[in-house]
Nucleic acid binder design. Structure first.
Lengths: 193, 193
DNA sequence: TAATGTGAAAACCTTCACAGCT
DNA sequence: AGCTGTGAAGGTTTTCACATTA
């Protein structure tokens, strides 16, 4: 969130921001912001605030987004194709360098400069390309199996688009994107209306 | 998360589950599950566990997903069209009943049984259709404006697909779906590898 | 004067451990 | 025997408030 807003502020030409104004934008308290940042270092100047460019660079480093990350995608259906063609990843240093599908009729089909590979190739390609992130866009009932394949191949992070919570070892980081769950986590607060 | 897993369990034919087994599936402690549920009532039987169907029905009610929710979508570009045609919402009681775009050339274009309307119609249609949720799939720099329009029209929840955090009154619930942010929140833990 | 960084206090959340029910 | 529901304990997170610095 910090990175997202700081980028916007930088683009808008601002150079300095206080925890107070940043808090307004992020809808969190100024104290929270100062405490959050204090865990990683001292990035501000008393009396002035934070230099946006400097703080942004520091956060990029802390978050590990000052480097390129390679990802592969499993499940080249409608959703998978949309993700592969999504132009938002590469400007942020995320590159999808391989994709896989279980459907034999799709193998070797060209897409975005790659060709679709069979699941059997996951281990090879993950290792040889040093891929650390797997994107999973397969049907729910195939998700756990595919996640297990990816983890066995050496992937450390999973971006999961299926509406289930795959079970993984604690050193594997999973982020699930599920619009229905997002909706369902709103309605509780909307009931009153 | 509970609802998601309980549905799977129900589909698999199971009828009862303990906090222990549920914890394994969700990767949280049994005590956490019992405490979570205890805030809303007593749903289990000592010595047996939770009746899956009963707990699921209770949670659906608590979360407000035992009813239909109407939504509208603003921004009928590539992403917007994908969302409108996504078949996952309606089985869960979420129905997109109107859509809007700023682009005049798209007005009245038919899509999924609707026709694209101009932004000026937001207020009318949100009120007349009792729409409580707005889905926003417009470019980042138009998001805040569109969110303001939706809120002014009476929408109480926003599902935001733009990579920014719109500022809203505290009684408005926002959920942002941003794959890049999801990725960026993983890399911190992946740095070591 | 304006704003950070930070101990201390307050608030909140998770885990423990066990009485009590099936 | 097995498992829930729950006070109490233990941790963690957030907020407060102020010394300090530009």
């Amino acid at each position: 969130m910090y990175v997202r807003v700081l980028k916007q502020l930088k683009a808008s030409g601002k150079t300095v921001i206080s925890s107070n104004s940043l808090g307004k934008l992020l809808q969190i308290t100024p104290a929270q912001i100062r405490k959050d940042l204090s865990y990683f270092g001292k990035f501000g100047k008393q009396g002035r605030g934070y230099n946006i460019e400097y703080l942004l660079a520091a956060l990029n480093k802390i978050l590990g987004i000052d480097q390129e990350w390679k990802a592969c995608l499993v499940g080249v259906g409608r959703l998978g194709r949309a993700i592969i063609n999504y132009p938002g990843f590469s400007p942020h240093g995320f590159e999808i360098v391989a994709c896989f599908d279980i459907d034999k009729s799709r193998i070797n089909e060209p897409i975005a400069g790659m060709s679709i590979q069979p699941l059997g190739q996951i281990k090879n390609l993950v290792k040889s390309n040093n891929i650390k992130i797997g994107i999973v866009s397969v049907p729910a009932d195939q998700t756990q199996g595919v996640v297990d394949l990816l983890v066995a191949a050496g992937v450390k992070g999973i971006l999961n688009y299926a509406p289930i919570s795959p079970v993984v070892e604690t050193d594997i980081i999973v982020r699930t994107i599920d619009p229905v769950t997002s909706m369902q986590s709103m309605t509780y607060y909307l009931k009153g209306y």
